[in-house]
Design a protein around this nucleic acid. Structure first.
Length: 417
RNA sequence: GUGGGCGUAGCUCAGCUGGUAGAGCACUCGGUUGUGGUCCGAGAUGUCGCGGGUUCGAGCCCCGUCGCUCACCCCA
């Protein structure tokens, strides 16, 4: 039998893996340059952590988790999102005991047992951040601006940032009562009514026209915000404006995880098809205490690397690999090959990425390999070069070459890079 | 879980109302002495997803099956 990857996973191999790596690195840099530090966590956790953290009523928990029993009879789940795990680690290791806020970033694979489609995978990759311990509007703005910076750094343009505020508990409860009342007055089929019972907000992003128009007059959460929530949200908006981060208010935005409160946002790309959300996040007030920790508020986001890469491709953005080859060396005979093997070993030791032509393909074929390797320079070593110790260093972009001493290659290349 | 589309060379696909397979790209070699990206020439490559059926004959028709894909749902 011929093995195949499990259904619906995303995989990256050369050529595309270079672009994938670039996306990940760029998003990470945006976080790291804002004082966020790496937290590396397991990809599986106690099932109960997600059930309580993400919410039993969410689709993610009720039907999309990869759950299994380990050999000790424990129920284990492959992480479907990042925030719950980070909270667990912060609580378990008392990371919130020192200075606040605690600012962390993470990157890795996440798992959801959904039906795959364009931009939706069963194993997918995210870069995420969490800022825990303060609920200043400055932090909200920082987090959002960070995500925005990462995306723009990559060259993305056709996306928008949607923003809303879910308010505090009292605001949400007041709104919920009126919304339930409104929905009970609508004529709905059974499935839709069940969906509304679980989370009435979900009707706001139903794609059916009938529901859309019915919901036009539904009570809007933003109108129920307490004075404090409102002031806070306005401050966040003012800050984003001062940063030059464009956004639109989406008073009907719905997020799929139960823990969101306060400032909530989503990055939506316009050229992607059905799965157009490339990232999103928000504030979570009660999450940490609910998981047994201190009553600290936090805010974070997750950005989908797979989807951001698709977005870059849709916009025709060419992403450079992180560490392209510096030099490709061609040996013309067997004595030369031995010499070249030693030479590139030395170059690599000096931190200069280099490769050579293997086998004996002839000069033309070897030059083709050099071309495809993407190396900045190539150099040919034949019997003449072995004797004289000098060779032609060729710039692969311009086609120009210069005579150099082989022994001084490390210095020359280091200077040019 | 529910629908639609599709499975032909490594990749993207063509294959007319059934007559035992083709293109482009990629790959290898070459276009006379040691320099790639363009151009030209030559070459290699397929259990036409799998199993059954109809037929003198099936890539093409029928049934089943597996897989992929897009959408619903949901979300990164």
């Amino acid at each position: 039998m011929k093995f195949q990857a499990p259904k619906g996973v995303s995989e990256y191999f050369p050529q595309r893996s270079g672009a994938f790596e670039r996306v990940r690195a760029t998003l990470i840099t945006a976080a790291a340059t804002s004082g966020y530090q790496l937290i590396e966590l397991p990809v599986f956790e106690d099932t109960e952590l997600f059930a309580r953290g993400v919410g039993e009523s969410t689709d993610v928990v009720s039907k999309e988790m990869y759950t299994f029993e380990d050999r000790g009879g424990r129920s284990i789940t492959l992480r479907p999102e990042g925030t719950a795990g980070v909270m667990r680690a912060v609580i378990e290791h008392n990371l919130d005991r020192g200075q606040l806020p605690v600012k962390l970033w993470y990157s890795g694979a996440f798992f959801r047992a959904e039906r795959p489609q364009a931009g939706r995978y069963r194993q997918f990759y995210q870069v995420g951040v969490e800022a825990i311990g303060y609920d200043d509007p400055e932090i909200d703005a920082e987090v959002i601006a960070m995500a925005d910076r990462g995306l723009r750094e990559l060259g993305l343009k056709s996306f928008r940032l949607e923003l809303t505020c879910l308010g505090d508990l009292a605001s949400r409860q007041a709104h919920r009562i009126d919304l339930d009342k409104f929905i009970s007055g609508l004529e709905l089929d059974e499935a839709t009514r069940a969906k509304a019972a679980l989370n009435p907000l979900r009707l706001f992003d139903d794609k059916r026209e009938a529901i859309k128009s019915a919901m036009l007059n539904a009570p809007i959460l933003l109108n129920y915000l307490s004075a404090e929530s409102r002031a806070n949200f306005e401050k966040v908006q003012a800050l984003l404006e001062s940063f030059g981060v464009p956004f639109t208010i989406n008073e009907r935005m719905v997020r799929g995880l139960d823990y969101y409160t306060g400032t909530t946002f989503e990055f939506v790309h316009e050229m992607l098809g059905a799965q157009s959300g490339i990232g999103g996040g928000g504030r979570y007030d009660g999450l940490m205490s609910q998981l047994g920790g201190a009553d600290l508020s936090g805010i974070g986001y997750g950005i989908g690397i797979d989807r951001v890469l698709l977005a870059c491709e849709a916009e025709g953005i060419e992403l450079q690999a992180i560490s392209p080859l510096e030099i490709f060396v061609i040996a013309l005979g067997s004595a030369e090959k031995e010499y070249v093997a030693k030479l590139i070993n030395e170059l690599r030791g000096a931190g200069i990425s280099s490769d050579m032509a293997y086998g004996d393909r002839g000069l033309k074929g070897s030059m083709k390999s050099a071309d495809k390797s993407g190396a900045r320079y190539s150099i040919v070593v034949g019997s003449d070069e072995l004797v004289s110790g000098s060779a032609q260093l060729k710039d692969m972009k311009t086609g120009e070459s210069q005579s150099v001493m082989l022994s001084s290659l490390p210095q020359i290349l280091r200077r040019s890079s």
